[in-house]
Structure formats: structure tokens, C-alpha cells
Design a protein around this nucleic acid. Structure first.
Lengths: 218, 218
DNA sequence: CATCCGGTCATGTGATCACAAATCCTGGCG
DNA sequence: CGCCAGGATTTGTGATCACATGACCGGATG
């Protein structure tokens, strides 16, 4: 019971299980946890200064979203994805995110495009610094910023679930990635947004989403 | 402690929280719970003869899947969907299920089509009997049987999540439905499967998925 | 008669404990 | 040297309890 200090971000309501859940979630989504490692409820509880009960809730919630794998005996690990599963999740990303981008297009004002360009420069910086976690984080921020304009919360939530499942593997993907080229597809996305070119946007998003995963599963 | 009798389906391993989860899940998916009603952890625990702990886990898991709504104070109710949300979920169904059907098409042998026709006659029977829950159950069984052939478990899981969110509202939808016509779109789906007609299949699935929800949100 | 305030009750949260099962380590046997 | 058995330990599960908070119902007051 030492972590009672408010992390300067939680205004008032911060149930313990929710704090644990959110922290673990972003960790997994950003690829900060390598696939296959085992987590223990007591360990998590100890790290966050809480008992097993909130730790268990957070873990089960993440398992329900596919972010963690529960063995038959209840042991919890971060999942190791098969190639088929990776391809399937990539197809899901394509399906969902193309639709989200398409819905965001008519609402994409100049202010949004500016923000996307700013984020994109951050992405490029992360690539040049070879910061894997930073790259994943800013890359997802780029996509989320665009999709928020689609006004489709359920669809966005599903896309985030897919990101979550891909998180640990994305990190491994980045490790194999030897290039330092800036995100070309992101520029195509921005260009299509500016031009109001829906087919071009769909194609650009599909390429951006598919390319990385392709080489991992190849 | 009345339901201690094994439901004749659980061989040995039946963790309490999992039993509670599965039971509540099918109840919700089949529309047996009307939207807006409140559930209590102690109430659920009492019904299943378990303590609050497994009940809480089951509820949180369902909430993570969007099947239940948690108020800010932790109160749990089955969600009441807005029209926008319903339209969005219908669009998700169309997106996911068209893809699933398309992937199932090349693997659809005659035995599968026979099974689909059998299930479809059950659907028709439920419609004629005005059995809302039975209709929803057999209708979902029809779709699931087809999509299982797609060999895409992650995609199927997402589709089921959408069904889950739509469950309580589907029941209300059926209440407004005055017709007793047999499922026309199901026959179109079967015909397209027989003919190996992919565009026709996509169209038929999209229509089947969209038509019902359209009149509810209209 | 509406409104606001009071307390009582129900409900979720989280800690702790007992228990069973799975895992792991170790020592002995082939 | 490899393999298996057996016990110690770790780990998840579920029950119970104390506590805080929000809901609900009552009456008193304007």
C-alpha cells in the first residue's frame, strides 16, 4: 500500500483494478512485453501494491480481449501467435481500418490533417532513433487520431482489440525490420485525405496495415 | 444451491466463474435478458450457488466484451443501445460476416449445405411458432455453422462479440416483427453456396444481416 | 404539493485466508 | 548419464469479511 500517491493523471476515481488493467493494456499494446512470458497474479499485485483480487480482474479482462492467454490450468502468459493467426489479424485490421478511414474521410478537416502530419513526423523520428516502443505508440496514435473522426466507437474498439492482440508480436516484427525509411504509406494516406480520394485512401490504409505484418508471416 | 446438478455437458473441469460466464453469455446472446435491467453480484452468486468472486469475474468478462454495461459506480446493467450504435454494429456484422462467408465458400461441401438447410428449416419452424429466443438461437447457429468453415477463429470471435452486443436488442426487434415469412435471405445464401457464386453470396449475407436491424433503427 | 434533506440499506471494491492443483526441484534408481 | 518419482513450493480459485459509496425511501418544510 505504498503507491497511494496519485499518478498525477487520475483525477479522483481510480479503482485499483482499472489502474492495473490500463497499465498492462498499454504495455501489451506497445509491445513492451515479449510473447510467451508468464505473469502471476501475486507478482502483478506486488508490482502495483494491490492484492490478488484487482490483479485477477485486470488479467481476466485482458484475456477476454485476447491480449493474454490463459492456459487450461489458469496460468496466464502473453500469447505467441501462429502465422495463420497473424495473417488473420492483419486481414481484420485491413477490413476494419479501411472502413474506419473511409468513414473519417468526409469529416477530415485541415486541422486533422495537420495533426496527422505532426504525429507522422514523430513516427519518423522514432524510426530514425530505432525506438521500437515509441514507433508502435506513435504509429497507433496516427491511426487512432484518424479513426476517431469516423464517429464509430464500436468499430474503433474492435480495431484496438486487434492492435492489442498484435502488440507483443509487433515488437518482434520491428526487431526484424532493418530499414529506416520513413512511413511512406502514411504520406499516401495524408495525400488521399487532402485530395478527398476515397479509393486511394482505402488502398493506402490497406497497404499500410498489411505490409508490415506480411513480412513477419512470410 | 439448486443448480448443482451437472448440466450433462461439463465433463470435469468446470470452474465456477466459467460456468457463470457461459450461462450468462448465452442468455444475453439469445436475447433472454431485456435491455436496461440491473444485475447484482450477490444476486448472480445466489442464483448459481457461488460467492461474489466468480460472479464478479463473469460479469467483468462480459462487460469487456460489450455484453454488459458498467455504470461509473460499478453498477451493471444490460446495455440499451442507441440507434447510432445499432447501425454501427449492423455495419460491423456486414463487414465481418461477408468476409467470413466469402472465405467459407471455397470450402463449402455438400454436407455443409445439407446441414445449413436442416438448420434453416428449424429457423422457419421457430418463426412459425413465434418463438423469439428459439429464432435467435437457430439463426445464429445457421451463421456460425457457415462461418466455421472459413477457418478464421479470430474473425469468428469478433462476429460473435457483435452478436453478443446485439443480443438483448434483437429480442426487442423480434417483438416488433409482425411477419411470419420464412428466412428468404437464408435461401439466397444457400443457393449462392451451391452455385459457387461469390458476389451473390456476399450480397445475400449483407442483406440478411442488414435487413432486420434496419427496421429497428429506422 | 413539490422539493430537499435525512438516514437506512443495498451494492461494489479490495484484502485475507484456506484449499487444491499444477509446477518445479531434487535425489535416487536403472 | 538419463529418467522417474516424490515432496516442497508456487499459483490460481473461491469464500468471507470490512469498508466506502451511491441509491433509495421517508418525512419535514417551504
Amino acid at each position: 500500500m505504498n503507491q497511494t500517491a496519485r499518478p498525477a493523471q487520475e483525477p479522483a476515481s481510480a479503482p485499483a483494478h482499472d489502474r492495473v488493467y490500463r497499465t498492462l493494456r498499454t504495455r501489451i499494446m506497445h509491445g513492451e512485453i515479449t510473447p510467451g512470458v508468464a505473469l502471476t497474479l501475486r507478482g502483478i499485485g506486488g508490482e502495483f501494491g494491490v492484492s490478488m483480487t484487482p490483479a485477477r480482474e485486470a488479467v481476466r479482462r485482458l484475456a477476454a480481449e485476447g491480449a493474454l492467454f490463459l492456459s487450461s490450468s489458469g496460468r496466464v502468459t502473453t500469447p505467441e501467435l501462429t502465422n495463420e493467426r497473424i495473417e488473420e489479424l492483419a486481414a481484420l485490421r485491413a477490413l476494419l481500418e479501411v472502413e474506419l478511414a473511409s468513414r473519417a474521410l468526409p469529416r477530415a478537416h485541415m486541422a486533422l490533417i495537420d495533426r496527422l502530419q505532426t504525429i507522422n513526423s514523430n513516427v519518423a523520428e522514432m524510426v530514425s532513433k530505432r525506438d521500437a516502443v515509441g514507433y508502435i505508440r506513435t504509429n497507433l496514435e496516427f491511426h487512432r487520431t484518424l479513426y476517431l473522426r469516423a464517429q464509430a466507437p464500436a468499430m474503433l474498439a474492435m480495431a484496438e482489440t486487434v492492435w492489442l492482440q498484435l502488440g507483443p508480436t509487433m515488437r518482434a516484427l520491428y526487431g526484424r525490420l532493418r530499414r529506416t525509411d520513413p512511413p511512406q504509406n502514411h504520406r499516401l494516406i495524408i495525400a488521399a485525405l487532402k485530395a478527398g480520394d476515397e479509393p486511394g485512401l482505402r488502398l493506402a490504409v490497406r497497404s499500410d496495415v498489411t505490409q508490415g505484418l506480411r513480412l513477419l508471416a512470410g
